[in-house]
Amino acid sequence: MGVASRFILRRRGGKSWHWTDIVTWVWLVGGLIIMFGPAVWLAFSSFKTPAALAEFPPSILPYVTSQATVQGYDKPLQLFEAKMPDGSTKVLAEVRRIGLVAQMVDPKAPGEIVRVNIGDRTPVRSVAFATENYTTPFTQFDFLRYLWNSVFVTVTATLITLIVNSMAAFALSKYEFKGRSLAMLIILATLMVPLSVIMVPLYSIISSLGLFNNLWGVILPTVATPTGVFILRQYMLTIPDELIDAARMDKASEWQIYWRIVLPLTAPALAVLAIFSVVWRWNDFLWPLIVLSRRELYTLQVGLSIYSGELNVQWHFILAMTVVTMIPVVLVFIFLQRFITTGIAGTGLK
């Protein structure tokens, strides 16, 4: 502990502490709590039973009240720790409650009924994870379907994005032709056209193509990302033209040059774009909300928002499904966060 704290609190050159150091540490530790706390709280809550969720003040860990089956009673009875008249405490099962007095039995000797004042007993609780919050939405609701739709949209859109964008980037970086700068300008100009500006006419185009209530209607408008073309083109500009000229000498077709030479060399940039694309498409909300109106077509994001907007919100299911929706992004964060942060810091794009 001593070594660890000395390592964390070290100052270069052994300088003494300054008030700004304290501000720094308060800010960082506060940031740690504020940034991760809410998500962690949600994850803990997702394992609670509906009864535990309705509790105030809430407990941090998921607790359930213990029950026991007692001879002579059909239903399992709730266990309480009761204070006996002689001052000792005993674990008893409640048979019924009349006003302020509870009729209880000893689970080991169920013959004799003990009367206990309800102020003198506390429920016996133990930590238990309500995993049915996770299994029920998948088995009894459509969430498995939503999960599949989300995975399908994310994977398909990312694959098409990589192919289409890299082809365009190849043309814009390795060929001299009339209108090249115009094409580049058009692509960059579309950065200015967010979905919220064109959603009404885009909807009419999607419906006239028969793609309303179709996952392809969600996928196609998103795949020609200007950011992707931009990132890939910048990277391809660094590939020496001599390589391509040499391949042409060897009678390679242009398609072979793209597929066998340029694409493998662009792998690092393709990886960055793939990570971005997966996060974008997984998180998309407004457009799927417009295009998909049939329940069995919802993506996870749309399904979650619809279920959470209902009058009688079943929070125990919503919380669990929110955690499921978070998982891919948390995995990306843990393993690939480095690529994203350097990518953003380098280009300023997201």
Partner: peptide
């Protein structure tokens, strides 16, 4: 520490909304 502050950026807006609604 840089990653700590970056974490919510990756979360989907729906998840962000639900976390705070809760």
């Amino acid at each position: 520490w840089r990653a700590v502050f970056f974490f919510p950026v990756l979360l989907s807006p729906v998840v962000v909304g639900l976390i705070w609604k809760w």
